[in-house]
Simulated scan of single mutants.
Amino acid sequence: MSAPLTVFIVMRKDLAKVLQWPLGSIVAQGSHAAVAAIWKYRDDARVKEYTGSLDSMHKVVLGTKNEASLLKVAEDLAQKDIPFYLWTEQPENVPTCLATVPVLRSDLGDVLKRCSLLS
């Protein structure tokens, strides 16, 4: 079996720990970013393949320390030409998370090395 295409969602850990956002609000941020990434890049072949089988979608939710570290992940993804969507909550204008298009984990290289599974 080949490696699956996976959407990587990277959330700011400080939303819960420092800013004390409710869990539901944090989950909504990741959902917003994932849907936005799929919609924005809907013509990408990887998105078409990923959405072609709704029963086998893979997602990994990772955490990063704060806004600065999230923006660094965004910068690193852009440098590797990996499409993503950075969700910025309005009207606060606060970047909260990002989601990649469906990619192979190997495509990321070490971009997400500073991230850990969100817990």
Rank of each mutant, 00 (worst) to 15 (best):
K59F: 12
K72Q: 08
S53Y: 04
S69V: 00
S53W: 02
I82K: 04
N66W: 05
E67Q: 14
G63V: 07
A74R: 06
G63P: 09
V61F: 14
P83T: 14
F84M: 04
A74D: 07
D55Q: 13
L54V: 11
N66I: 06
N66D: 15
K59G: 01
Y85G: 00
A78D: 09
K80C: 03
L70F: 01
V61C: 10
L77N: 01
S53R: 06
K72T: 13
F84D: 04
L54N: 10
K65S: 14
P83V: 10
E75I: 01
V61D: 05
K72V: 11
E67G: 06
Q79N: 13
K80E: 08
E75P: 00
A68F: 04
A74W: 00
V73S: 05
V60Y: 04
H58E: 00
L77G: 02
P83S: 14
T64L: 07
L77S: 01
E67W: 06
G63C: 05
L71D: 06
A68Q: 06
S69T: 14
L70I: 02
V61M: 13
I82V: 15
S56M: 08
L86F: 00
L71P: 03
F84I: 12
A68E: 08
V73E: 05
E67R: 14
L77T: 02
S56R: 10
D81A: 15
Q79G: 11
Y85V: 03
I82Y: 10
D81F: 13
S69W: 06
L77H: 02
P83E: 14
V61N: 07
S69C: 07
L77V: 03
K72P: 05
E75Y: 02
V73Q: 06
E67K: 15
L70K: 00
Q79S: 15
K80A: 13
Y85Q: 02
L62H: 11
M57L: 09
D81I: 04
Q79A: 15
S56H: 12
E67H: 11
A74Y: 00
V61W: 06
L86D: 01
L54M: 11
V60F: 04
V61K: 08
S53E: 03
L70M: 02
L70R: 00
F84S: 05
L70Y: 00
F84V: 09
L62E: 07
I82F: 11
H58L: 05
G63H: 10
A78C: 11
L86Q: 02
V61R: 07
L62Y: 10
V60H: 05
E67C: 07
V60L: 14
D76T: 05
A78P: 11
Y85H: 10
L62Q: 10
V60Q: 14
K59H: 08
A78S: 15
G63I: 10
G63E: 08
V60D: 06
L62T: 07
H58F: 15
T64C: 15
D55Y: 04
D81T: 13
D81H: 15
G63D: 09
A74L: 09
V60G: 03
Y85C: 03
T64A: 07
G63W: 12
G63L: 08
L86S: 01
Y85M: 02
V73D: 05
E67L: 07
D76E: 12
L77M: 01
V73H: 09
